[in-house]
Design a binder for these strands. Structure first.
Lengths: 84, 84
DNA sequence: TTGATTTTACTGCCAAAGCGGTAATTTATT
DNA sequence: AATAAATTACCGCTTTGGCAGTAAAATCAA
């Protein structure tokens, strides 16, 4: 999932939502320029800015790796330790 | 998946890979400071910087939404149109 | 213990991300 | 065809992310 693909995803979802870039930007609380840049595939967009726009479009970021289950196990173990 | 969780994921994977922050940063071609900041949950890290670090740790970013299949259909349709 | 490695945490500097404004072009709508 | 809306693309400005360097604290290995 490179920046260009992410831009395409955002464009598609925004169009489907019937939002203009400016409306989308306003809902996300960011400038119109970043929405434009993002859809153009700009790779240097900041994570929080991306997240704000994705939130408006009901898209979520998921990390995938061969070790994610192990990570989830460790996390829930840690939670238990902290609780009890 | 917020920035804090991403930081935890990165930390876990880096540790499992047996890499120091500096070694990880060098492999990713980024500064040690961003690896530190990222693992601390800094939300303003840039997408390309994040991707470089994730690539080293064999983690990939996936976008999820109720409309992703529809998007994939549109994309492949567009590919066909552009080809033939 | 001791020495080495790693991590935490700060610094100043530079490049650039994000911002609103503007205007030309393109696309819808009536 | 005419009007409105949306998109593209530029411009300066301000803020800040990423960088290397440093040093103290914590962790690990001999």
């Amino acid at each position: 999932m490179d920046a260009k693909k992410i831009g395409q995803v955002v464009l598609f979802h925004r169009k489907t939502a019937g939002l203009s870039r400016e409306a989308c930007a306003e809902l996300a609380g960011v400038g119109k320029t970043v929405v434009y840049d993002l859809e153009q595939g700009k790779p240097t967009i900041q994570l929080d800015t991306l997240q704000k726009i994705l939130a408006v479009l009901n898209i979520k970021i998921v990390l995938e790796s061969p070790m994610m289950q192990k990570f989830e196990q460790e996390i829930s173990k840690k939670m238990e330790d902290e609780k009890g």
